[in-house]
Design a protein around this nucleic acid. Structure first.
Lengths: 189, 189, 189, 189
DNA sequence: TATGAATGAGCCTTCATTCAT
DNA sequence: GATGAATGAAGGCTCATTCAT
């Protein structure tokens, strides 16, 4: 009964992510959102009660994707696991950047948004711990240069994600290449 | 003689940079700008005709600083020059990030802004060429691993700039450390 | 036979009255209306073409009730008739208040609403005349203090209806009590 | 310095009261407010941060007026004091009605509004106590009919305020007339 | 010149009403 | 007939920009 939906919740969140990455959190406007959807601006309110909830839901979904992919990684070999982790983060484009917006969301406006953010925060902590454990193992197993402080190693590793892929190399290979640079350096062997 | 000067152009641009980095381009508001300035919001229009011009002027100034510092680098030893370049970019905090906002500025609104952006664009190209020349030299002189495509090496190098400095190591040392990781890798030698 | 009846016209008007008294005319919203009804908001339009018609119909029904009850009053004894009138108006809770909203309804929007309002207006006039005749008779029969202008006496009498019943005395007794105060005053005899 | 104000805070509150009485709380719109002012709608925000604050401030001012006038009443003779109280409430037109809107204001939206409402609430309690004391004294001094419950007497007294003044009798006389009806009744002596 | 005040354009959100199943 | 979904027209509020002192 009733009409058929102009767009699905999933389409809405897809577009949300797109607009968010293109215009940043402060530049996120419902006008831009609806522009990329097959329906009017006010229709958005069928799904979410306000702007904040939309953004929070979008972030939550991205986080869930990442958690899902990460949980599928075999971490028996820690170096291999790191390589795969890097790939996952790269595939889940701009996961990193999106998370940076999380703290800007005004929780006071919406309980639902606050709840989603809580989830994201929790997951974030979990991911970090998992990652740190991998790095510690890598160090203990003698794969890393012990003269470099671990936080620096981790920071550089993470930052690889945002390296601009000028040559448009497919993500799996691009990820492998960056991993090699990170581990072996850019200098002559 | 009139009234006393409320704030100088330079103070205005300092504050512009601060607000820009804190709130992003889309979150840049004149209210935030004047809040950190010793004068009224409307006084800003004594210096610039609109928002776009302010941001463009700010970026231009940052670019000029970078150009100035870069031009002082001795590039007889290309590897040393690269190391120094990295330091300069890091010192000129968030130069990279600011430049990312450049393409968001609406040039249609102001000829002055368009002019400044033109300058920035030009300088950007120049810097890139200079950098590339250094990298080519580095490769020719056998400092780099030839099995890695140069664009990837450059991309990673540049991305180092944004690596979060969790341990708050002073910039010159932090720069040196990142340079080492980049060149030698994070793995065991 | 189609679908089952979601709610009757009468239920709709009951709920209309409730919402109207709770939120006032300007606060009357279809969302609040359907919330207390066993059916969807859009179903309301099966009965009435727009908001104005609903409110007008509600008022008309209340007025009809009052007319009905009033016509049953035996007015051979005018003082007794007045007492009974007061009771009727009080039973027909907030009749008075509802009528106050009548002039706010935008007739331009709906012929049906305009028609109902016409009826209400007419009935209102009739009731007033009837009442006035009763008061005139009461005065002529010497029941009222002739040193007080009749309009003042009538005004006070009518206003009794809205006296807050803090002690929750049952309406018939409450009505009788107010009638006594009105007639005999609050002062020592 | 700067331009001269389009309207004063006081004018704003005057108009607020007018619109509030004409359209009720739910019908109170900034458009209606600015329509009666010599300035644009957005100018209102120079004085108050939102709708709620405006309404709360308006009510507070009315309450302050009432408190001021009430405090000037000589209550050595309680019956005389009651008569004067009635006049005050009538002069401060629709004070009663306005107060009825107080509980509809959404305090969550504004600390300033909540603060004003706190004041109003407090003053309301004080006024009520003062009034009750007067009535108790009146009863003890034997001015009132002891066979009528005091709350009913008080309720009727208060309700007099809203009696429609059809003949447009000047307020002091109108008040006196109502007081007489209340005390002595409308019936033949 | 410096600025306090004014303001219109634009954004978020709500709501009566219409559509299409 | 009943309804879930769609939507444009407003209303509250903010902000860049202009005015007038």
């Amino acid at each position: 009964m009733g009409r058929k939906q102009a767009f699905t919740k999933s389409e809405l969140l897809d577009q949300t992510k797109k607009v968010l990455l293109e215009h940043g959190y402060e530049g996120f406007q419902l006008k831009l959102l609806s522009r990329g959807l097959a329906g009017a601006r006010s229709t958005i309110y069928q799904y979410y009660a306000n702007k904040e909830e939309i953004v929070a839901a979008c972030m939550k979904r991205v986080m869930e994707n990442v958690l899902h992919k990460v949980s599928a990684i075999d971490d028996s070999d820690c170096m291999n696991a790191l390589q795969q982790l890097l790939t996952v983060y790269m595939e889940e484009a701009n996961f990193h950047q999106l998370l940076g917006y999380a703290h800007k969301i005004n929780k006071a406006n919406s309980a639902a948004a606050a709840h989603d953010l809580e989830f994201i925060e929790q997951a974030h902590v979990t991911l970090k711990q998992q990652l740190e454990r991998l790095f510690v193992r890598a160090q203990e197993e003698g794969h890393l240069n012990t003269s470099i402080p671990l936080p620096a190693i981790i920071g550089v590793f993470f930052n690889l994600i945002d390296t601009p892929n000028m040559m448009n190399i497919p993500i799996p290979q691009w990820s492998k290449l960056l991993y090699q640079i990170w581990l072996g350096g850019a200098g002559r062997l």
